[in-house]
Design a protein around this nucleic acid. Structure first.
Lengths: 206, 206
DNA sequence: AGAAAAATCTTGACACTGACAAAATAGGCA
DNA sequence: TGCCTATTTTGTCAGTGTCAAGATTTTTCT
C-alpha cells in the first residue's frame, strides 16, 4: 500500500486522507463564512465528497468543529513558543512573548479563536481537545513560573498570577476580534507589540 | 380601544406588544438552548404566534438577536451602576465595583453575554446596539477617569489604562463562562469578590 | 358614521441544513 | 479467489430562515 502515496493528488478518494482534507476544508469554510454560516454540507463539497461522507470520521458537526478547535490549540501553543524563541532568555521577556503569541494567534485566526473558546468546545470531558487546551495553558503557566517560582500553582497567589495573565491576554484577543479596540488594532501588529507588552506586564504588576 | 387591555392574556389576534414578547421569549430560548440551538421559529411559537410573525418586527433573525444584545448592554450598564451604588464614594472602590458588576452580569447571563460580544453583533454602524455598548463602556471610562483625571482619553496612556481595565474584566468574564477557571468560579460570587478586586486593581497597577 | 389605507399576523412554499438508513464501492485478508 | 469490513454515495426526513400571498385587525381620512 506504499504505492503512489505521493501521486498528483487525483480523485482516488476512497482510501485517502479524508479526515485531514475535511479539517482543512472546514478551516477555510470557517474563516470565510464564520461560525454562523458554517455548513457541514458545503465543507464536504469543498473536500470533494458527498454530504454524508464526513459521518464516518466525525459523528457530528460538533465533533468536526471540536477537531478543528483541537488543532487550533496546537497551533496556538506553537505560536506562543515561536514568540518565546525569538525573545531570548530573560524570564520577563519570555513571559511577555507568551502573551504576544497568544494575541497574535487570535489576530491571525479570529474565527478559529472564537471557535476554540465558544460554546461548542466548553466544559467537556478529558478529550483530546481538552488536552490540547491544557498544553496551551501550560506554556503560559511555565512562563509565569519562571518569574514567580516553580511551586507557583501550590499557592492561591500563584493561581491568581496565572489567571491575571491569562485574562489580560484573552481579553485583549477577544475584544480585538470583536472590533472593540479599533484604536489599537487598526495598527499593524508590530506597532501593537509594545502596547501589548505593557498590558501583559500589568497583570503581574511588573 | 382602551378596552380589555388587562384581560386574562388571551389570544386577541393582534396583541400589540409582540416585539416585547418576542424579545422576552428569545431570551428564554437563548438561555435554555444557547446561541447554537436557538431558533426563530421556536421563539415565535413560545411567544404564541406563527413562524413568520417576527418578520414584521425584526427583518432578520440577526436583527432579533441584535435587539436582544442591545437590551443586554442596557442591563450590563445597570448592573455596573448598581454595584457602584453600593460601593460608596471612594474612587478606587467605584472602579473596582464597575469591574465586579461587569463580571457579575456575565456570570448571571452567560449566553446573553456571549451573544453581546459574538460575531453577530460585531463592527456595525451607529445602530442602537452600538450606542448601548458605548454606554456600558462609558461607565468603566468614567470610573477610570475619576482615578486618572478627566482628560483621560486625551492621552495614549489614558486609553491604555481603560483598555487594561476592560480587558481584565472581560477576560475574566469570558473565561469564566467557558468554564476555564473552575477553581475560581466554583465558589459563590461573593467569595469571588475579593479575588476580582485584586485582579481588577492590577490592570491599573493599584 | 363608513370606507379606504396601513399595519399586523397566518398560511404556504422554497432552498438549505444535519442526521439517519440503505445501497454501492473499494481494500484487506483468509 | 471470495468473504468481510471500512468507506462513500444516494435518498430521505424533520427542522430552519426567508419570501410571497392572503386574511384580519387597527388606524386614518372624509
Amino acid at each position: 500500500m506504499t504505492d503512489r502515496e505521493e501521486g498528483a493528488g487525483q480523485r482516488r478518494y476512497h482510501h485517502g486522507e479524508l479526515r485531514e482534507a475535511l479539517l482543512a476544508a472546514a478551516e477555510m469554510e470557517l474563516s470565510e463564512k464564520g461560525e454562523d454560516g458554517f455548513s457541514l454540507r458545503s465543507t464536504a463539497k469543498r473536500a470533494g465528497v458527498s454530504h454524508a461522507a464526513p459521518a464516518h470520521h466525525f459523528k457530528d458537526v460538533t465533533a468536526l468543529l471540536q477537531g478543528l478547535a483541537q488543532r487550533g490549540f496546537e497551533r496556538l501553543t506553537a505560536t506562543m513558543k515561536e514568540e518565546q524563541a525569538e525573545a531570548g532568555d530573560d524570564a520577563e521577556a519570555l513571559y511577555v512573548a507568551s502573551g504576544v503569541g497568544y494575541i497574535r494567534f487570535a489576530a491571525e485566526n479570529p474565527a478559529l479563536f472564537q471557535l476554540m473558546f465558544g460554546a461548542r468546545s466548553s466544559h467537556d470531558k478529558p478529550t483530546e481537545l481538552a488536552k490540547a487546551g491544557d498544553a496551551s495553558f501550560s506554556v503560559l503557566v511555565n512562563a509565569v513560573a519562571r518569574l514567580r517560582g516553580a511551586d507557583l500553582l501550590k499557592t492561591e497567589e500563584g493561581w491568581r498570577d496565572v489567571a491575571a495573565a491569562w485574562m489580560m491576554v484573552h481579553g485583549y484577543a477577544h475584544l480585538a476580534i470583536g472590533g472593540k479596540v479599533g484604536w489599537l488594532t487598526g495598527q499593524s501588529f508590530d506597532r501593537q507589540r509594545p502596547v501589548i507588552a505593557d498590558l501583559v506586564r500589568r497583570a503581574l504588576r511588573l
